[in-house]
Simulated scan of single mutants.
Amino acid sequence: MSDSSRNADAPDASAGSKGRVTAAPRFPGGPSPDPAGSHHERRIRSFQPRRSRVTTSQGDALRRLWPTWGLDIDGLRTLDLAELFGDERGPRPDLPVVLEIGFGMGEATAEMAAADPDTGILAVDVHTPGQGNLLGLAERKGLDNVRVANGDAIILLREMLPPQCLDGLRVYFPDPWPKARHHKRRLIQPEFLSLAAPSLKPGALLHCATDWEPYAEQMLEVLTAHPDFENTQPDGGYAPRPAFRPRTRFEGQGLDKGHVVHDLLFRRVGRTTAAPTAAAQD
């Protein structure tokens, strides 16, 4: 979502040789239009689809890099993050992984990945141009700590992530659904927090940002009330924008309109689940 899922898509076009957008087939071996199909219940959804266009360079990145750095959220398997972020040397079991839901065109994601190469970023979106753009950025910047997931983050959290596998969760500028009758569609709500909490390690940071004041107020209220999270701010309020979160293009547009951006930094509370002993396994 974020700068992104306000622009979710259907991957049905690409740009011609002179930059003109022309119809094109879907990308062989690339992201699926609906990876989870109809075999998973969706009571809440992490995005709002909308058609958009794919440029030549984005399409090229999808075709070449998706088989290595991309994955479809099909809900049919449990991910091994050490394997997912592995390289020619093998799996990377000690690499901390942060889940980012909604990355827009991926500029901020790539910037954060470059600034912190020892952290893996599992970036989820349905916006095909953004997926291609982020893959291209990762290649050009030599980033091996970014993986791009296509589909509904709700299904990823509910069906595909093992317990306590994430070191952080980022939700930047999700769709605010400003009309009162649509507030139930907002992502940050008690049901979502209860779904996300089991995949987060104790101490993992949940970082939200929004430029929509009423949504910021709801986020603060919902997060404060949830037993699995605690505010990192002693006064129980909003946090200053941390240095690791770059200013995004969408954020700049909001600031130009006079919007106020609020960051919320909450920590996952609880104890680490101990691995079973040999005696317990016998």
Results as ranks from 00 to 15, higher is better:
K184F: 07
P214V: 04
V171M: 13
F192I: 01
R158A: 15
V146P: 12
L206I: 00
P202D: 05
S199F: 00
N133K: 14
L166I: 11
T128Q: 12
D211P: 02
C208R: 00
K141C: 09
P198W: 11
H182M: 01
H182Q: 06
C208L: 15
R186E: 03
Q164E: 14
H183S: 03
K201C: 03
T128M: 12
P202Q: 11
A180N: 13
I155D: 14
E213N: 10
A196S: 03
E191F: 04
D125H: 06
F173Q: 13
Y215L: 10
A216C: 14
N145K: 00
L137R: 14
Y172M: 14
T210H: 09
L156P: 02
L206E: 01
D175R: 12
G203I: 02
H182K: 00
A123I: 11
P163V: 05
S194G: 15
M219L: 11
L157G: 10
W212S: 06
D167M: 01
R181A: 05
P198E: 12
N145Q: 10
H127E: 15
Q218A: 15
N133Y: 12
A204S: 09
A197D: 06
L166T: 12
P198S: 07
W212P: 05
L166M: 13
Y215S: 08
L187A: 04
A138W: 06
A180L: 11
D167Y: 02
L187I: 09
L134A: 00
Q189F: 01
A149T: 06
K201M: 04
P163R: 13
E139C: 04
E159H: 10
H183G: 08
G168M: 10
P198L: 06
A153H: 01
V126I: 15
A123T: 10
G168N: 12
I155G: 08
G130E: 08
G136R: 14
R158N: 14
L135H: 13
T119L: 08
G136C: 05
P162S: 14
Y172T: 10
L135A: 13
R170Q: 10
V171Y: 03
A196V: 05
K201T: 02
G120I: 02
A149Q: 07
P174E: 07
S194L: 03
L195C: 07
I121D: 01
A153T: 07
K179Q: 13
G203R: 07
I154P: 09
Y172C: 06
E213T: 15
L169S: 02
I155W: 08
M160G: 12
L161S: 12
Q164A: 05
L122A: 08
V146W: 13
L156V: 02
L161Y: 12
A204H: 03
K201I: 00
T128P: 04
W177L: 02
G132E: 07
I121G: 01
E213G: 11
P198H: 11
G132H: 04
R181P: 06
G136E: 05
E191V: 09
M219P: 07
E191S: 13
L156G: 02
P202R: 09
H207S: 11
W212E: 07
L187P: 04
K141T: 10
K201P: 02
P202Y: 12
A196G: 09
P202F: 09
